[in-house]
Design a protein around this nucleic acid. Structure first.
Lengths: 163, 163
DNA sequence: GCATCCTGGTTGAGGGTTCAACAACAACCT
DNA sequence: AGGTTGTTGTTGAACCCTCAACCAGGATGC
C-alpha cells in the first residue's frame, strides 16, 4: 500500500462545492417530479427509455443497461410501475427466462404530462445558469469521469478473471 | 404558462452524459464506503462535520445545515450512529428544545479508518481524470448551479411570504 | 444425454429517505 | 401573565434501494 494522497485545501473546496451542487440539484429534480407527477426520477427514466424503444418495449436486462440500473432495482421498479398501470410485463418468445417490459397507453400519457415540468426544471437549473463554454467543458468532464469508472469496472472484471 | 423550452439533441446528450457520470460516480463512492467501512456516504459526512466542529459537537439544526440534510433525515441518521456507538446525544444548555450530537472516540476512530479509502476513491475518479482547467471550470459550474438553486429557494420563500 | 456453469430475473430482509404529524419549548406581542 | 406564532427535534408509515439468496432456463463440455 502506498501513501494516501490527501486532498489539498483547494481540492477539498472544489470537491465539497461539487457534491453540494449535485446533491441539491438532484434532490430538487426528484422532489419536483415526485410532487408534480407522483414518480421518482428513476421511474421517469424507465418510462423514457421504454418510450424510445421499438414497440415501446424492452427486455429487462436491456432496460437495466439503458437506465444504468441493477436488475434487482429494475425488477422492483417495474413491479411498482405495473401496479400503477404504466408498464406491463410480457413473456419473451426467444428466451423463456426473459421478461419484457412494455409501456402502456396510460404510461405514455403519464410520461407526457410529467415531461414539461421535468424538462423545465433541468433547463432552468442547469442550462440557464451555465455559459456555452461551461457546458462544453461539462460534457468533457462527464465523459472523463464516466470512462474513468468504466475502466475501473473493466479492471475489477480482469481481477476476477485471474482466478 | 409559456411554451416549454425542450432540450435540443446536443443538450440532451450533455444532460444524459452528465447524469450518467454523476450517478455512476456517487454510486461508486457509496458502495466503496459501505463495503469497506460499513457506512453510507451521508453518514460519513456527518462524522466529518462533527470532527471539524469545536468540541467535535454540533446542535442538530446546525449539523443539518452543514450536511445539507433535512432534520428528519438527520434525526434518523444520528439515531443509527448512536446505536453504532459513534455519536452520542447531549442536552443543550441554552435551549431546552435543543439536542447536541457529539462524536465519540470510537466514532473518530471509525472516521479515521474510513477516510483513506474514501479520499483515494475521490482522487482516483475525480481529480485524476480531470485537467486543472477542467477542475477550474467544474468549480465555476458547481457554484453557478448551487446559486441557481439557492435563488430558487429564496423565490419560494418570497411567494409564501406574499400571503 | 447429462453434469456443470452461466445468465436472466425475482424475492425478501434490512436499511435509508421522505413526508406529514406531533410535542416541547422559545419568542413575541399585547 | 397569557395567547399566538415560530422553531427544534422526533416519530412512524410508506416507499425505494441494496444485497444475498434463489429459481428457471440457456450454453457448454464430455
Amino acid at each position: 500500500m502506498s501513501e494516501v494522497r490527501w486532498l489539498s485545501a483547494e481540492e477539498q473546496q472544489v470537491w465539497r462545492g461539487f457534491m453540494t451542487a449535485v446533491t441539491k440539484f438532484t434532490e430538487h429534480l426528484d422532489r419536483q417530479l415526485q410532487r408534480d407527477s407522483g414518480m421518482p426520477m428513476a421511474y421517469y427514466e424507465i418510462l423514457v427509455a421504454l418510450s424510445e424503444a421499438p414497440d415501446r418495449a424492452l427486455r429487462m436486462s436491456e432496460l437495466a443497461a439503458v437506465c444504468h440500473s441493477s436488475r434487482s432495482r429494475l425488477s422492483h421498479a417495474v413491479a411498482r410501475l405495473e401496479k400503477e398501470g404504466w408498464v406491463e410485463r410480457r413473456a419473451c418468445a426467444s428466451d423463456r427466462r426473459g421478461s419484457i417490459a412494455a409501456l402502456t397507453g396510460p404510461g405514455h400519457t403519464a410520461l407526457e404530462s410529467a415531461a414539461p415540468g421535468h424538462v423545465t426544471a433541468v433547463r432552468e437549473h442547469l442550462f440557464d445558469v451555465l455559459t456555452p463554454e461551461q457546458l462544453r467543458v461539462l460534457a468533457e468532464i462527464s465523459h472523463a469521469v464516466d470512462s474513468g469508472l468504466t475502466v475501473e469496472c473493466a479492471k475489477a472484471r480482469e481481477e476476477l478473471a485471474e482466478f
